Amino acid sequence: MTVTNIDAIVVGAGVCGLTSALCLARRGLRVRVVARRLPPATDSCAAGAMWGPFLVDHPDAERWAAEGLAIFRGLAAERDTGVTMTRGVEVSRGTVEPHPWLHLTGDLERCAWPGYGSAWSYTTAVVDMPVYSEYLLAALRTEGVRIERRELRSLRELAGLAPVVVNCSGIGARRLAGDTDLTPVRGRVVVVRNPGVDTFFAEESDGPELTYYIPHGDTVVLGSTIERPGLPALPEAAVVRRIRDRCADVEPLLRDAPVIGVRSGYRPVRDRIRLETGTVDDQLVIHNYGHGGGGVTVSWGCGQDAASMVEACLTRLG
């Protein structure tokens, strides 16, 4: 790849990579995206997905989440974004308080749900990831951003091709950034035809299995698994059966809903999101990865901060 007159190269085409690239381009910076996989083959496209806290930690995470929710509300008013504002319920087996972030929705209400110690109703953004990823790609094309499918062995391969590299490689950062603190946590979901479900349901849990269903128009995404490394993997048929049974126990309409497909991806889980400036040899690199199960939720907030960091680097470079 030969690149000239580029301000930044973004590595990765998951939700955080595409969003970061769009934040940069909308500030008038010249951007290229390099990725091993493009939508719909990215891990992000396997997600449920909805705005909310899950396997994500950072002192700025709540601010990033609030910024993202505001943007998703705007996107829900546009056509063909894959984003809708949907009301639903989150439950817990124990008697617990709602996560502080849920107050950001503005309509959080405690409610009752049979068999659960705590339940809250609220409206949040639900995101059809294959559709939303196509929206982001189209927005990048409109901004003149070129996207190259290419597998990198090292970030050193990009040295000198742009003043700044933005590393949004997700679980690929284990190799590209040598980050052994990053854990690939597999999640599998089942997509069914929507039999008439218009609200979401999510059970608070640390796994190894999650129970949730999220409507996306004509389809519903049923979840999920939290498969950490080193544990034996269930066969796909067993995973599908268990997910469908759990969801149908909550919403009987889902019991006979035809299966359209099964999606699988890896959540890039880390003790703390890594959003910081570093160097690889003499190449400036801004790392933006480790978003766990909250990549969609914090993507816009992290993307805006990454764009500000790129601008600061370019100013220092003169």
Rank of each mutant, 00 (worst) to 15 (best):
41 A>W: 05
177 A>G: 08
140 L>H: 09
82 G>E: 06
211 T>A: 02
206 D>K: 14
20 S>N: 11
224 S>K: 01
260 I>W: 00
199 T>D: 05
132 Y>W: 00
97 E>P: 04
257 A>G: 11
232 P>T: 09
93 R>N: 14
181 D>I: 14
218 D>N: 14
174 R>W: 01
175 R>G: 03
13 A>K: 07
251 E>D: 06
150 R>H: 14
18 L>A: 10
56 V>G: 11
9 I>V: 10
298 V>E: 10
128 D>M: 01
105 T>H: 04
187 G>M: 12
66 A>V: 15
20 S>L: 01
9 I>P: 00
13 A>D: 04
97 E>F: 09
5 N>L: 10
228 R>L: 13
240 V>I: 15
13 A>V: 09
11 V>Q: 05
241 R>Y: 12
203 E>M: 13
132 Y>H: 11
53 P>D: 08
307 A>T: 13
144 G>R: 01
38 L>E: 11
316 R>E: 15
137 L>C: 05
3 V>Y: 10
110 R>W: 04
263 R>G: 05
311 E>N: 06
242 R>P: 13
305 D>I: 06
156 R>D: 10
262 V>E: 00
170 G>Q: 07
84 T>H: 12
29 L>K: 15
256 D>V: 04
146 R>W: 15
69 L>I: 11
227 E>S: 13
40 P>F: 08
301 G>R: 02
179 D>F: 03
191 V>M: 09
280 V>R: 15
98 P>V: 08
133 S>L: 04
258 P>N: 13
47 A>L: 04
180 T>A: 14
275 L>K: 10
80 D>R: 15
205 S>L: 08
230 G>A: 13
313 C>T: 14
88 G>A: 04
115 G>I: 01
108 L>H: 03
150 R>P: 04
152 L>C: 08
98 P>A: 09
15 V>D: 11
55 L>C: 10
307 A>S: 13
112 A>S: 14
116 Y>T: 04
23 C>R: 15
172 G>A: 14
269 V>A: 05
313 C>H: 12
26 R>P: 05
10 V>I: 04
217 G>K: 11
135 Y>R: 10
237 A>D: 12
128 D>E: 08
232 P>M: 03
50 M>K: 06
31 V>I: 10
135 Y>T: 02
185 V>H: 08
155 L>I: 06
10 V>F: 02
25 A>C: 05
55 L>Q: 02
246 R>T: 12
199 T>R: 05
253 L>K: 06
78 E>S: 07
178 G>E: 09
144 G>Y: 00
64 W>L: 03
108 L>T: 04
88 G>V: 02
278 G>F: 00
230 G>Y: 14
199 T>V: 07
3 V>Q: 08
130 P>I: 06
109 E>D: 09
124 T>M: 03
109 E>L: 15
51 W>T: 01
298 V>S: 09
59 P>K: 08
136 L>W: 02
34 V>E: 02
205 S>P: 01
